[in-house]
Amino acid sequence: MKKLSENILDKISIDYVRTQVLKNAYGNDDTPIAKLDPRTLLLWYLFFGFFPWFANNVVLLLLLFMFAAATTRLAKVAPLVLFVFCLGVFSQTGYLLIVSLFFDGNLSTIIPLSVLTLKVATVSLASITVFSGLDPDRLCAGLLYFGCPDKLSFSIAFSYRILPVLMEQFQNILFSYRLRGRVPEKSGSFWVVKNLFYQIKIIMLSFYPLMLGTAKRSRTTVEALELKGYRHSLSNPEVRRIKLSHLRFSKGDFAFAFISLVYTAGSILISSYIKL
């Protein structure tokens, strides 16, 4: 506790989070998944994001989970994202599963819980694969193709871009506070608490200049976009055509679709034979 409170500021490194976000957005463009056409990935996601919710067979879900996990591995997902994934699954249903395993570990409680856990896990892994495999620009192209409003796809790309910038700025502002602030005196019995309070306080305070700075910056961005005729381009079909003209299906896309199909069909077949 004491060690932790002394230096949360040094431990939770915003720099780490920032590079992980960047990694997730731009860092893995050389994986097999990233080579696929965004449309293939989105269609694939349409299936793997929905189908598990309607499946209730543990074996089938387990097989689908394994497939999703394999694709996640292929996509070389950033460790932080995987960690958040585990945390998410655990906080949703996983902890119930573990608790019930400890208390009365009979199958009648474990199976329904593991069904739910597997569903959540499979869908999340599929999402992670798709969103790590697609950099923001390709994601937008894919969404645009399927008729998603241009404004939405633009917002997604923009927030991906702006997030690392914001984090860097946050780091700088936080450092401004630290350079000018004073750590509570190392004496008295409440020092640990005081120090913790000081660190949390400057983290909170840093958001305020960040927001003001961002507000000012977004105005510049919007003005720049307007100067380039962004709003007009939204409704222009020619712009849409140019934006989408680079999309091509390749052999890899067909192979990926084929493997997914065969695997899913096989899983359904196998699971209908094995009864738990």
Partner: peptide
């Protein structure tokens, strides 16, 4: 050392002054 302590000797004026305004 923590930045709070180094600040006794050094001070940095950022490339982007806006990030200094708190």
């Amino acid at each position: 050392k923590k930045p709070e302590e180094t600040a006794k000797y050094v001070s940095l004026v950022y490339q982007n002054p806006e990030e200094m305004f708190i």
